[in-house]
Amino acid sequence: MNLEAIMDYMPQLLKGLETTLELTFASLFSGLALAVVFTLILSLRFKPLEWLVKAQILLFTGTPLLVQIFLIYYGPAQFKGLQDSFLWPLLSEPWFCALLALALNSAAYSTQLFKGAVDAVPAGDWEAALALGMNKRQTLIRIVLPHAFRRALPAYGNEMILVMKGTSLASTITLMDLMGYADRLNARTYDTLTVFTLAGVIYLTMTGIMTLVIRIMERRALAFSN
């Protein structure tokens, strides 16, 4: 591992950084939106949908992310009907498949976090709102969810970092993210130690920055509890 090699590899690896960041934030954003909807469905016990959400959680927390990415990318090609449908341009796109897998995976774990936090909100929060003439839906949306999300933020911060690291698996379906460029560079140079150490350092730096940002968000969101 010498300085010259590092200076040579670094710019090539950083070419994948944009894809990694885009994929991370797009997945987190879609996953979060889904998780909020899923949490509402579970909390309000919308009967048929409740079972679907529970099945989704079981599938996506019960199988490896890599399996999910493979199934979503290679799976639809087996079905003639899907190949002819308007969805095909999206489903044949590795970027979109990786996004879909990561978002659904993150939604499943986040829903578990949020639902746990909703259940942990003291009964007094509910009772006070009902006693003030708010109905169940208003209470959930205006009082309980905001309280629960604040409480869930430290755990959700870990989920954000897991998703960021999880994007590296997208390189297995030909996506040229940070890990994709590292793979290519390794295949060309066989300088495995240097290449993957550098990739690791970049991931570590991103984790560090995200941790810092999450801590600041936590301090604001949980200011009430000090």
Binding site: G124, D125, E127, A128, H147, S225
Partner: peptide, 10 residues
């Protein structure tokens, strides 16, 4: 209420 039941995050 006995325990006030104020919403702590507001």
């Amino acid at each position: 209420f006995q325990q006030y039941n104020l919403w702590p995050h507001m």
